[in-house]
């Protein structure tokens, strides 16, 4: 099967520095490293922007799953994984997913969802879902 060639990957990491060293501190980074490698451009949002020295601790550097040459750009967006999770910081927002899924059967459909949540900025989006503190308070899932 031929490889899927991605134009761009959008990834959320726990922490990153300005040169694109990205840390995923949850127990699973899933296929994020493959996404970073598969795409021409990889843009990473992170919950926390850190100084490069943060990674001088090998325990922290061990949770970096691709080299910075694979990262095109980094933007700090605290809570930026919402409605998905950024383990171990916060879990995924199940009621939000349910509302999103239910919108498929609403009269207003996807547009209704967009109107309700997607404002002009990330700030407006986060306010529409209860704010950053609420996002960070979402419990991690139990499997």
């Amino acid at each position: 099967m031929p490889a899927l060639k991605l134009d761009a990957s959008l990834i959320h990491a726990d922490r990153a520095d300005t040169r694109g060293v990205c840390q995923i501190a949850g127990p699973d980074h899933y296929m994020d490293d493959w996404f970073a490698r598969a795409a021409d451009k990889t843009y990473v949002s992170c919950d926390e922007l850190v100084d490069t020295a943060f990674f001088h601790d090998p325990v922290q550097a061990r949770m970096v799953h691709w080299e910075r040459s694979q990262t095109t750009g980094v933007v700090p967006v605290a809570g930026g994984a919402h409605p998905t999770s950024c383990s171990p910081m916060y879990g995924f927002d199940v009621p939000h997913f349910k509302a999103y899924t239910a919108s498929a059967k609403d009269e207003a459909g996807f547009k209704g969802y967009l109107d309700k949540h997607l404002g002009a900025s990330e700030e407006e989006y986060q306010q529409s879902v209860g704010g950053l503190d609420a996002i960070r308070a979402i419990e991690l899932p139990t499997y």
Binding site: P27, D28, H29, Y30, M31, W34
Partner: peptide
């Protein structure tokens, strides 16, 4: 836990 076994 005995082994890391991420999705990949």
């Amino acid at each position: 836990a005995e082994t890391w076994m991420g999705f990949s």
